[in-house]
Design a protein around this nucleic acid. Structure first.
Lengths: 231, 231
DNA sequence: ACCTGAACACCGTTCAAGT
DNA sequence: ACCTGAACACCGTTCAAGT
């Protein structure tokens, strides 16, 4: 069944996994099925991934890379404004998701955001603050667009369900900053952590972000009302 | 292990399934585990559900019912405007999702929208058209809010991936109309089917809805720019 | 280092059998 | 009608063994 006899690679396994998921659905993607796809016993895959869950994490990572590549592959146009730029980024990302319809289901099962997402998001934060947005609005914009693109609910910095507190957020922030060069993202996190500790919000962290997106939508709808505020 | 010895019921099994998913995660919810929870062998569950997939469909249905109930349980206030009404509906629905964090993952794996969702959505359409919105905007508002609430991407009327054409949409429309009393939803579908056949959009149906939501968010963000259009 | 085969515990599902 | 037990094909994962 081996289509190509070049040596097995983490990346090659992930590409095969994408192929299987595209053709037969995410639920058909088993270690044994994937092993067959790359011409190897299922147990051999454990040399490249710590387990099925690790493989799925890698798959989410690969998906994110593909999205990043698709966004970077757009015809460069430095004359466009932030809005059309961000718009075309989202549309390009969506094309990738449409190619792999199981993306939302995969992302929904992952506990953590793929590492490559930080690099992807860095560009968007840079774009937003470059356009004049505050870090706080940039943060909320990220959530608003993230929920549309991938349906997450998932927090970027701090374990979502397992009671991620401020310390965890700080730790994640430091990690992100030393791991790669993410200047804008890093500055945004620092600003937000500071802001949060100041105002001491009692409620869930994501509640604020949720309401922000909700109000963005509701206000936008209101403007479309026949007697609404035209401008 | 049977906690209560009243006769087994579809509803009781579903409640037990919710409990298991809440405590141990959706991935821990197996037929055998669920059987143990209700004090029965796994095979007995096949008398109430056509299979695991059918059980998960039932689970999505039960979740939708819980959301509908939570929305209906809000303190009634007929003096409030459409916007605060819709807002509180969304917040109430979100509370249910927060109680069951596995909801997005479950919905992402379902092929069809739960039947109870139609009744839930009927109320929102009624609210929107009552406020003066056109059926078209109401339809798009549904998608915008739906993507925020549940992350779907999922089409309400027509199989999403399996090439759902206009006939399927019409069939679904008729089904929905005779099945329950959904006057507003029915009128909206009729209006949209007509509109679609008129303009003969060549691209994917959901693309329009996606871009609508995207622009709603981007326009809303633009308004938050320091030098933005205040009003 | 990379891969295998046998083994274990678990899974969804069938079917004939019980009451 | 409702539930069971044995059985089948499949799953993730271990471990000792091969090269």
């Amino acid at each position: 069944m081996q289509k190509t006899r070049r040596p097995l690679t983490r990346a090659r396994v992930l590409q095969a996994a994408i192929k299987v998921a595209d053709r037969e659905g995410l639920s058909a993607l088993s270690m044994r099925r994937l092993g067959k796809e790359v011409g190897v016993e299922a147990m051999s895959l454990y040399h490249y991934f710590p387990g099925k869950d690790g493989l799925l994490d890698g798959l989410a990572e690969a998906l994110t890379e593909e999205i990043k590549a698709a966004v970077a592959a757009r015809p460069p146009d430095h004359s466009i404004d932030w809005k059309t730029d961000l718009r075309s980024r989202c549309l390009a990302a969506r094309q990738v998701v449409l190619r792999h319809p199981w993306t939302p289901a995969l992302f929904a099962t992952r506990k953590f955001v793929p590492g490559a997402m930080y690099l992807y998001v860095e560009q968007i934060v840079a774009l937003l603050v470059g356009a004049g947005f505050s870090y706080q609005i940039a943060h909320r914009a990220l959530h608003a667009l993230g929920s549309l693109m991938f349906g997450f609910a998932q927090e970027l910095f701090s374990p979502p369900a397992s009671g991620g507190d401020l310390d965890a957020a700080k730790a994640a922030a430091e990690f992100a900053c030393i791991a790669e060069d993410l200047p804008h993202l890093c500055a945004m996190i620092a600003s937000e952590v500071h802001h949060v500790s100041e105002t001491k919000i009692g409620w869930c962290d994501t509640q604020t972000e949720f309401e922000f997106t909700l109000d963005l939508l509701l206000d936008g709808l209101e403007r479309l009302l026949p007697g609404g505020s035209e401008r």
